[in-house]
């Protein structure tokens, strides 16, 4: 595999290999010397057309722990449509000899365009409303760590599926890994033809919760109500928000996930986000391990990542 653009491109064995590799690399983070020499001499560019400090820092930490040289390249969204084109930026990165480009972009499909213009590996760090495959990988990694398995796990994803790259990547990856996904949202926030996706669809959160091992709350932007996706933030929260009372409907060992950033009080209540069921903090730590695994496997470091080197 050269690029990671869509979670749908990962086979079952690809996905398991990434998760297993991440598991071993996670041990590096637990050591006093948090570095492996694996990607020494390689250059990873973080190409961010959209502000996301959290995701950029996560990739940056992952690359640095593998000893790669990291270049951060931020392009302001507004200057893109007029002026510097993605192609010109790509040619610049080519000239700098980027071995891997991590791209975050507000336009769906931008990583596919980039992959036509650079020779290095393209890693999708979120493109528009399309996909965010490393988020799905870290979510799967978190579920497997907490619950011990992915096969037949019942995962309920709640919220703005229509505009969510996290939901698209999760549905594809979790299906590949054998989990059973149910999407819960008001019908306005589900894409037309969602029935063609490999998952169940429901409109009622309360009846879905008792049948969930995992409930993943998606961020819902308040501005969506201006386009009539729902009548008010209050009504959304009442019907689709996860509060303590609703959380009590979950089976005892079920977990609550959120890809962040959260709208506390909108899709998730503060007491839920901070409860022991919540994996939100671990998700951040797991993100680094999973991104290390992806960089390691795609950029094919000359040093063995595991079992050698500084150990």
């Amino acid at each position: 595999m050269l690029h990671l653009i869509s979670a749908a491109d990962l086979s079952h064995s690809d996905a398991v290999l990434i998760l297993d590799t991440a598991e071993e690399l996670a041990q590096v983070g637990d050591r006093s010397v948090k570095k492996l020499p694996t990607l020494r001499g390689r250059t990873v560019v973080n190409l961010f057309f959209e502000d996301s400090t959290r995701t950029r820092i996560s990739f940056e930490a992952a690359a640095k722990r593998l000893s790669a040289d990291v270049l951060n390249f931020a392009v302001k969204g507004s200057s893109v449509s007029k002026g510097e084109s993605l192609k010109d930026t790509a040619l610049t990165l080519e000239a700098m000899g980027a071995d891997g480009v991590v791209i975050r972009h507000n336009a769906s499909g931008a990583p596919y365009r980039l992959a036509e213009w650079v020779r290095g590996s393209v890693i999708n760090a979120g493109d528009g409303t399309h996909e965010h495959p490393t988020q799905a990988l870290l979510d799967a990694f978190t579920m497997r760590r907490r619950l011990g398995r992915l096969a037949d796990l019942r995962v309920t994803i709640v919220g703005d599926v229509l505009h969510s790259r996290v939901a698209r990547s999760n549905v594809a990856l979790l299906h590949t890994l054998g989990a059973q996904v149910t999407l819960v949202a008001p019908p306005t926030l589900l894409p037309v033809a969602v029935e063609t996706w490999p998952c169940e669809v429901a409109y009622d959160l309360d009846s879905a919760l008792p049948k969930s091992d995992v409930v993943m709350m998606l961020r819902v932007q308040r501005e969506r109500m201006q386009a009539a996706y729902f009548p008010s933030a209050r009504e959304y929260s009442r019907r689709y928000g996860l509060d303590a009372e609703r959380m009590a409907r979950l089976p005892d060992d079920a977990i609550v996930m959120h890809p962040g950033p959260m709208n506390r009080g909108m899709e998730i209540a503060a007491e839920v986000a901070d409860s022991p069921r919540s994996t939100i903090v671990e998700q951040v730590a797991n993100g680094v391990s999973v991104r290390m695994a992806v960089l390691y496997l795609l950029l094919g470091g000359s040093e063995p990542a595991l079992g050698g080197g500084e150990r």
């Binding site: 409303t129 790259r165 698209r168 037309v192 996706w197």
Partner: peptide, 18 residues
């Protein structure tokens, strides 16, 4: 709107033209 609204636009995350 960016493309025909249907199964393909849903998968690609492009706003649909129904």
């Amino acid at each position: 709107a960016q493309m025909n609204e249907g199964a393909v636009s849903a998968r690609l995350g492009l706003a649909g033209w129904p």
